[in-house]
Amino acid sequence: MDLGAFEADNSVSCRLVSQIPDVCRTEDCCLGIDEAGRGPVLGPMVYGICFCPVSKKEELKELKVADSKTLAEAEREKLFEKLDKANSYIGWALQILSPNVISTSMLQRTKYNLNALSHDTAISLVQYALDSGVQLKEVFVDTVGPAEKYEEKLSQQFPSVEVTVRPKADSLFPIVSAASICAKVARDHVVKGWSFPEDLGDVDTDYGSGYPNDPKTKAWLLKYLDPVFGYPQFVRFSWSTAQTLMDSKAVSVHWDDDEEDGEKAAQRQNKKSMLSYFSVSAGRNNQSPAHQAHRFFTERRLKNLDTL
């Protein structure tokens, strides 16, 4: 698997694709979607699709693809090689969502949650297959969130395709298993070969599974916590594990969209709460003793200083 395109800049979302087999453009095809790396606090989340003609489903079974979780890493690698070599009738595409993309999406001003991000990534991959001329008839998806809702969303998006969303789809449908293998292999490669853009010197890569409940992962997170910047981009800042550690160990940072209670915030900012304008006392004697600067200055947030 050539990850060069992603490794050139591992802070973004990157799509890797196989060649589109010619039969897929002429025959009715089925497509499976699965993801790898949804839960870890470290590393990217990878979305994979695999597609092949409906008539070749049996051949796919003969490759003995199975749910990626039941396979050892070496077996997964082998299976991916097989899938990749079967490029006469199997195609795949991957979307690598770097941890930085996940962090910035989930923490941006208008929150974009992980489910929405997942759905949109899946949709964009299916759209990619359609745009490439794959004759899609069936789509199988391992669910994210409630299956019915997701199925409805995808069906509406792709009215010409029959969408099946099932929990554990990766063990039910070989095409989903194949997608899960592609995604998992890509994630493993990315995590192993992660080059830290930060200047961290020799990075200790013994971070365990990357899952929040892994003590090794926690220890690693503590070790690489910078009081000002927090973590390297390898860490998903939006994970509560990371946030809790930063809240307790790092310098506190205030953003202007931090949620605070109205009156409390007003007090801290030394401003009046809206309610105070309606209270009897404030309404009457409005002559504030303090000098009110001209609006030229207040609009520009310019103040006099009395000391440096």
């Binding site: 520009r300 947030r301 310019l302 103040k303 006099n304 200083l305």
Partner: peptide
């Protein structure tokens, strides 16, 4: 004269 631009956050 010394004026300071000062805004929260």
């Amino acid at each position: 004269e010394v004026k300071a631009f000062e805004e929260e956050f």
